[in-house]
Amino acid sequence: METGTLRVKRGMAEMQKGGVIMDVMNAEQAKIAEAAGATAVMALERVPSDIRAAGGVARMADPTIVEEVMKVVSIPVMAKARIGHYVEAKVLESLGVDYIDESEVLTPADEVFHIDKTEFTIPFVCGAKDLGEALRRIQEGAAMLRTKGEPGTGNIVEAVRHLRLINGQIRKVQNLSKDELYHEAKTLGVAYELLLGVHETGKLPVVNFAAGGVATPSDAALMMHLGADGVFVGSGIFKSDSPEKFARAIVEATTHYQDYKLIAEVSKNLGTPMKGIEISKLHATERMQDRGL
């Protein structure tokens, strides 16, 4: 009997496919998310748009919130640790969360090194905006990926950019010759063996979700259409007018992302989605996606 194997960690993410993982800030929201059909919840102290508004240093949530959420739902519970913050991750592991997000949404604790995720029993999900970042995170032990997008903006453009870029880079790698692969591994800053795997299979060895800016059912369906395995929704749900309706609609649009009539139906009378931010209005220091390369 073996726990924490690569297959057990990556397999857990496979079971989330086609699903929606929702940010929640308390037990009540967690119950709403579960009732709406979320496949997992991310327990947080503040959603990304509030983190943006508050400024200052964003850290791991108070363990009370994480435990409170774990108590009330039967679906998996994830929680965020700062990039490079080994101890926050160990604390979350000790609480028994099901997945740790080493996340650029929080203020990085280390500007160079990520956590060595291979030595944990709990699997990790990490953000990536290109193939180099994606494979470096896998090399460090991430068992699931998500696009970085631009969290807390309610603007899908960055998530689209990142998913398109990663998928385009995968297609390019598939067509490289062996000698070109050595060079490409060096250019991307990744291990040759990992790149060879992408070359041979035409895909990443782990599940890749969309995240960072999903605000509407159509946004979720767009990311599925572009090849995401599932969707994280952060501020989009509990910053909208009617979270319950919104959550259910996003779940349905993700499952039936090619059924446009259904998406039209679930999008009716949802009220106002979160306001959203134009990306060019963000100052360079406000761009979360540039953290943890």
């Binding site: 009997m1 194997t5 998996p76 592991e93 028994g96 099901d98 709990i122």
Partner: peptide
């Protein structure tokens, strides 16, 4: 079996299948 921390894989005898099966248990 518990939460993800307790997820595991093992070899299992299954009636009707000759040799053991690798079984991955996730939550």
């Amino acid at each position: 079996f518990g939460r993800q921390r307790e997820s595991f894989e093992t070899d299992l005898e299954v009636d009707g299948i000759e040799e053991r099966v690798r079984a991955v248990f996730i939550r």
